Simulated assay, not measured.
Amino acid sequence: MTQPTVQPKLTPQFCFNTTALRDFLRLSRASIDDSITQNLNALPSASSAPFDPNSVHVRTPRPRSHVDPAACETFKSHVLFPSWQARTDLISYCAGVAASPDPDDPDAATREAEKMKRREMVVDERLDPYSGRFFPREGRTEILAGVVRLEMGVEEVVRRRTWEVVKERCGGEEQEEWLGALGAWRNGGQGKGQVR
């Protein structure tokens, strides 16, 4: 069985390294969500009918088999939901970092110097219409906030698509939406030992 995603250590430095942040999310999605069909195919099937040698003489489309309900529940509670929770925790933590003041921003002095220089500059837009344009550099927290917003949207789409496959293959799902199923997993004690 596929292993759940192991959450990296939550630090502001990890969040500000947006390449590492995106890589973690991309790899987690690739190993769990993007390969959900393969992960479910690796689980035992619900049908336990023995092999019929006569079935190879006639070519008929094979009905889509459902995954064994117990195996499906184990996969969801030990792999899928813990991986989703690890990504949720990381995105939430980084959203908090992005919303907090950043006194250690290494580019803060440079940006402030640019702003001061811009204030002192005399602009005559009649001579140069482009001289009035000023695009200040974004701070680390602003960049991180943009990355977090983007990743939240991606996460929503990926989870909705994954949950549709899980509902189709596992069958008999009570929850219509992935959010309800994840909430039930969190509240049902199946996430014991998981960071919430």
Rank of each mutant, 00 (worst) to 15 (best):
V6E: 11
R62C: 06
V122I: 10
F134S: 12
P129L: 12
V6N: 09
K9R: 06
G193M: 05
V67T: 14
V58M: 09
T5I: 02
P136W: 14
G139P: 01
P50R: 14
P82L: 03
R133D: 15
L10Q: 06
E138N: 12
E138M: 15
G171Y: 07
T5G: 08
P129K: 13
S31M: 07
G188S: 04
L40S: 07
D33R: 05
A71S: 15
S31W: 00
V56G: 11
D52A: 04
Y130D: 15
F14Y: 09
P69D: 10
F134W: 11
R62I: 07
R186A: 07
P103I: 07
I32K: 10
R161W: 00
R169G: 05
L90G: 09
Q190D: 12
R87S: 03
S83T: 08
P63Y: 11
V148H: 02
G132L: 04
M121Y: 03
T88A: 13
T162W: 02
Q13M: 04
L10T: 05
A184V: 00
D104G: 15
P129G: 15
I36H: 06
L179Q: 08
S55R: 15
A95K: 10
R186P: 00
Q38A: 14
E174Y: 10
Q13F: 02
A109I: 09
V122H: 12
P12I: 06
F14C: 06
D104N: 15
R59S: 14
G146R: 07
W185N: 01
P129F: 13
D68L: 10
R119M: 08
A30Y: 04
M1Q: 10
R169C: 01
G191W: 01
E174F: 02
L127T: 09
T110S: 15
T2F: 03
G188C: 05
V166Y: 06
R62A: 11
H78N: 14
D128Y: 11
L179D: 09
Q194G: 07
E174K: 09
E125F: 01
G188N: 03
F81K: 08
H78S: 15
F75P: 03
P50W: 09
G132V: 06
D52P: 00
L43N: 03
D105Y: 11
H78V: 04
Q7T: 03
A30P: 05
Q175L: 08
N187E: 08
L43I: 02
T37N: 11
C72W: 13
D128A: 10
H78T: 13
T18L: 05
D34G: 14
S77F: 05
V157D: 07
L80W: 02
G193E: 08
L90N: 14
L150A: 10
P63I: 07
I143S: 15
R149I: 05
S92I: 01
T74G: 14
A95G: 14
P82R: 06
G189Y: 00
S28L: 04
S55E: 12
A108P: 04
R126K: 13
T74V: 08
C170V: 00
D89V: 01
M121T: 11
Q3I: 02
A71N: 03
D102S: 12
R149W: 04
E138P: 00
C72V: 03
G146S: 11
S131R: 14
